Amino acid sequence: ELREAFRLYDKEGNGYISTDVMREILAELDETLSSEDLDAMIDEIDADGSGTVDFEEFMGVMT
């Protein structure tokens, strides 16, 4: 189920989504998050600083 959700956002099928897209997902899930909260969450999610979120990083957030 998580893989299907990931595929919805990984429109190009390249195995990752951008941190911008991940930020939008988080904002949709919790509309009360401030910009600073979102920045901090993205920094934590994208631990390797690649600017992308792969499936493993995505799973870590969603579980």
Rank of each mutant, 00 (worst) to 15 (best):
E1F: 14
E1S: 15
E1K: 14
L2D: 04
L2Y: 10
L2K: 02
L2W: 15
L2A: 06
E4P: 09
E4G: 03
E4Q: 06
E4N: 06
E4R: 06
E4M: 05
A5S: 07
A5Q: 14
A5I: 15
A5T: 13
A5C: 15
A5P: 02
A5V: 15
F6G: 06
F6T: 09
R7D: 15
R7M: 14
R7F: 13
R7C: 15
R7E: 15
L8S: 15
L8T: 15
Y9G: 04
Y9A: 11
Y9L: 15
Y9R: 05
Y9D: 03
Y9E: 04
D10N: 00
D10R: 00
D10F: 06
D10A: 02
D10S: 01
D10M: 03
K11T: 13
K11G: 06
K11C: 12
K11H: 09
K11R: 08
E12K: 04
E12I: 04
E12Y: 05
E12R: 02
E12F: 07
G13W: 02
G13P: 00
G13L: 05
N14T: 09
N14Y: 09
N14R: 12
N14Q: 08
G15D: 03
G15A: 01
Y16S: 06
Y16W: 14
Y16P: 01
Y16T: 06
Y16N: 03
I17P: 00
I17T: 01
I17N: 00
I17F: 04
I17V: 07
S18Q: 05
S18Y: 07
S18A: 08
S18G: 09
T19V: 11
T19R: 09
T19Q: 04
D20F: 07
V21F: 07
V21K: 11
V21I: 13
V21S: 11
M22G: 00
M22A: 04
R23A: 02
R23N: 00
R23F: 02
E24I: 14
E24Y: 12
E24L: 14
E24S: 14
E24M: 14
I25Q: 00
I25F: 07
I25N: 00
L26I: 07
L26N: 00
L26R: 00
L26W: 03
A27K: 14
E28M: 14
E28C: 14
E28Q: 14
E28P: 01
E28A: 15
E28W: 09
E28V: 09
L29W: 14
L29E: 03
L29D: 02
L29H: 09
L29A: 08
L29Q: 08
L29Y: 11
L29I: 10
D30K: 08
D30P: 02
D30N: 13
D30G: 05
D30Q: 07
D30C: 10
E31S: 14
E31L: 11
T32M: 09
T32F: 09
T32H: 11
T32V: 04
T32S: 13
L33I: 07
L33M: 08
S34I: 05
S34R: 08
S35R: 11
S35D: 12
S35W: 08
S35Y: 08
E36L: 09
E36P: 05
E36R: 09
E36C: 09
E36A: 12
E36N: 09
E36W: 10
E36M: 09
D37F: 06
D37H: 08
L38M: 07
D39Q: 08
D39G: 05
D39P: 01
D39L: 07
A40C: 11
A40D: 07
M41L: 13
M41H: 04
M41T: 03
M41G: 01
M41C: 06
M41W: 15
M41N: 00
I42V: 07
I42A: 02
I42S: 01
D43V: 12
D43M: 14
D43S: 13
E44G: 11
E44H: 13
E44P: 03
E44C: 14
E44A: 13
E44N: 12
E44L: 14
E44D: 10
I45T: 04
I45D: 00
I45Y: 05
I45R: 01
I45C: 03
D46I: 04
A47I: 12
A47Q: 11
D48I: 05
D48S: 07
D48K: 08
D48T: 08
D48Q: 06
G49C: 09
G49S: 10
G49V: 04
G49E: 07
G49K: 12
G51N: 05
G51L: 04
G51S: 04
T52F: 07
T52E: 05
T52L: 08
V53W: 04
V53P: 00
V53Q: 00
D54T: 14
D54L: 06
D54C: 05
F55C: 02
F55T: 02
F55W: 09
E56T: 10
E56C: 09
E57P: 01
E57S: 13
E57G: 14
E57D: 09
E57T: 14
E57L: 09
F58W: 10
F58S: 01
M59W: 05
M59N: 06
M59T: 08
M59G: 03
G60T: 14
G60D: 10
G60V: 14
G60Q: 14
V61G: 10
V61L: 12
V61C: 12
V61H: 12
M62T: 04
M62W: 09
M62I: 09
M62V: 07
M62R: 03
T63S: 12
T63Y: 07
T63W: 06
T63D: 07
T63C: 13
